[in-house]
Design a protein around this nucleic acid. Structure first.
Length: 274
DNA sequence: ATCACGACCTGGAGGC
DNA sequence: TGCCTCCAGGTCGTGA
């Protein structure tokens, strides 16, 4: 579900939690991604700490505290972070509850593909989840020459390339299709065929697609909501994703769907010819 | 070493 | 109504 724009939307709607003091911690006891359980003892050790900031890198969210530790969260496919009154009943699949006085910060994740951890800020860049991440296209920017050089060393497709979190952090399956349509590149194009010019166009397309989605508070195709429970509106603005047989907004050809590496890809067979 | 695939989970949608 | 199959925004380990 959540790609960079959705995580950024969550980050922004969590900002009212800055300044709040952690009053309690609870976990369901069930494992999340790879069966790993959120670290209840480390979370309980943060009782009394104050939340001082919220950062995002790619699809990862970091909640900083006034201690040397930060809380690391990844929403997987169905993860949600919500701020709700502490009196509100827990919905099914609630896996972490961090009490903030009268409010709770709750992590809810039906499929349990998400991640939740406590990290030492001083060494966070060595954390397995963060160590291999590429640059964040919004906060770090993307260097055309570096990306072009990397593309030339690979034999994979351009779609797999931009989905690789070690290359670019934050692009997921929806925005990969959208960015490739915007850049007019065939998803199956091999990366070593990218030129300096098409690499630049690809970077511009990725950034435009992500920025536009952030402006629209993310894409809610099925069940994405922000920390206040609101759905994003970017689904209204998708050019190709989930638009099988609908007209291409550029040339009116029917949008096609193909499966690459087990993931659905939507594209225009006419104007994504390169 | 690189790349593509299946597995990990649950729920919703659609067909019969 | 109910059962069955398929599909889903992510990531990792496996085996080719």
């Amino acid at each position: 579900m959540p790609e960079l724009p959705e995580v950024e939307t969550v980050r922004r709607t969590l900002e009212p939690a800055i300044g709040a003091r952690i009053s309690s911690a609870w976990c369901s006891g069930l494992g999340l991604h790879m069966g790993r359980k959120p670290p209840l003892r480390k979370l309980r050790a943060l009782v009394g700490a104050t939340i001082t900031g919220l950062r995002r890198h790619g699809k990862y969210l970091l909640l900083d505290t006034d201690r040397p530790q930060s809380i690391l969260a990844h929403l997987g496919m169905t993860g949600r972070l919500r701020i709700v009154p502490a009196s509100e009943p827990r919905v099914p699949h609630t896996h972490v509850v961090i009490g903030l006085g009268a409010r709770d910060l709750r992590y809810i994740d039906a499929r349990r593909f998400g991640q939740f951890d406590v990290v030492e800020r001083a060494t966070e860049s060595a954390h397995p989840a963060l160590a291999e991440l590429g640059p964040d296209p919004i906060t770090d920017g993307l260097d055309p020459e570096a990306l072009h050089a990397l593309a030339r060393t690979k034999r994979t497709t351009v779609k797999a390339f931009i989905l690789d979190q070690g290359v670019i952090a934050g692009v997921g399956n929806i925005y990969a299709s959208e960015a490739l349509w915007r850049a007019q590149l065939r998803p199956t194009l091999r990366t070593h065929k990218l030129t300096a010019k098409t690499t630049k166009a690809l970077i511009a397309a990725i950034q435009e697609v992500l920025r536009r989605a952030i402006e629209n508070n993310g894409t809610s195709l099925r069940d994405f909501v922000d920390a206040d429970g609101s759905a994003g509106s970017n689904w209204e603005y998708l050019w190709v994703y989930d638009r099988l047989d609908k007209p291409c907004p550029r040339c009116k050809t029917s949008i096609r769907r193909a499966v690459h590496q087990g993931r659905a890809t939507y594209y225009c067979p006419t104007c994504q010819a390169a």
